[in-house]
């Protein structure tokens, strides 16, 4: 029952987004343009760029993610759809996990589209040694951004300045996960060992997913 409800919410959100492409188009355009502009601003062959390329990549994903996450609960406000969902037998936890999975899918797709731009324009080494670990970091880092972002999207949904409030509240919470993802990415691209970062991201994801599932009912119903 829980999984079926989660799947229904996820497919509903993806279906709605694919029909309008509001968040998707904005997010892809933003991430690609930012990566391109920075590639022109710095010399891609320099050693220096290797040092901050991980940070640049994840900052781009974090900002692009805000565009996706802002729409997540905002699309429920129109026509009071959130009330219809809460009044239905769907648990708040299923609603949250369903939305988080939809946001994860959208943001991950944005990352997969913009990643080749990064590889191409930043002259980073890219082989099997980087690809699989990078995929793992992308999954873990993106889930960290998504789970916090989805919870705060629910929290700010009724605020008049939600487009401003969401990033203001979310980014400080994301900092530990972002730093871990940036460090791992930079180390991967430099051919250094990734160290403790992966375990930190796994722990971060588990803890924040559990906290979000516990508190989302309070956030939605008060």
């Amino acid at each position: 029952m829980f999984l079926r409800q989660v799947w229904t919410i996820t497919t509903k959100d993806l279906h709605s987004e694919l029909r309008t492409k509001e968040a998707w188009n904005a997010s892809i355009a933003f991430s690609v343009v930012i990566l391109l502009l920075f590639s022109f601003a710095f010399d891609p062959s320099s050693e220096q760029i290797r040092e901050f390329s991980g940070g640049l990549l994840w900052m781009t994903y974090a900002f692009a993610g805000a565009l996706v996450l802002n729409r997540s609960f905002a699309r429920e406000v129109q026509n009071d759809c959130l009330d219809a969902l809460i009044a239905s037998p769907v648990s708040s936890a299923a609603l949250f996990v369903g939305k988080a999975l939809a946001n994860f899918s959208m943001l991950f797709a944005v990352e997969l589209v913009s990643l080749p731009v990064f590889v191409l324009f930043y002259n980073v080494p890219w082989g099997a040694a980087q690809f699989l670990p990078m995929l793992l970091v992308l999954v873990l880092g993106t889930w960290a951004l998504t789970v916090i972002g989805t919870l705060f999207s629910a929290l700010t949904v009724n605020l008049r300045l939600r487009e401003l409030m969401l990033p203001t509240l979310v980014y400080p919470m994301m900092i530990p996960a972002l730093i871990a993802a940036m460090t791992i990415t930079t180390n991967l691209l430099a051919g250094s060992p990734v160290g403790f970062g992966i375990r930190f991201l796994v722990a971060f994801d588990i803890i924040f997913t559990l906290l979000a599932v516990v508190f989302v009912d309070t956030v939605l119903v008060g």
């Binding site: 079926r4 509903k12 709605s16 026509n79 009071d80 759809c81 037998p89």
Partner: peptide
């Protein structure tokens, strides 16, 4: 028992079709 609500907002998604909207809520109500 179960409840149904008709409030101030219509509670349906603009970007979904009529059949998609009702099928969605049918699924949510199992």
């Amino acid at each position: 028992g179960s409840i149904g609500i008709l409030g101030h907002g219509i509670g349906v998604y603009d970007e979904l079709s009529a059949i998609e909207n009702l099928t969605l809520f049918g699924r949510l109500h199992d």
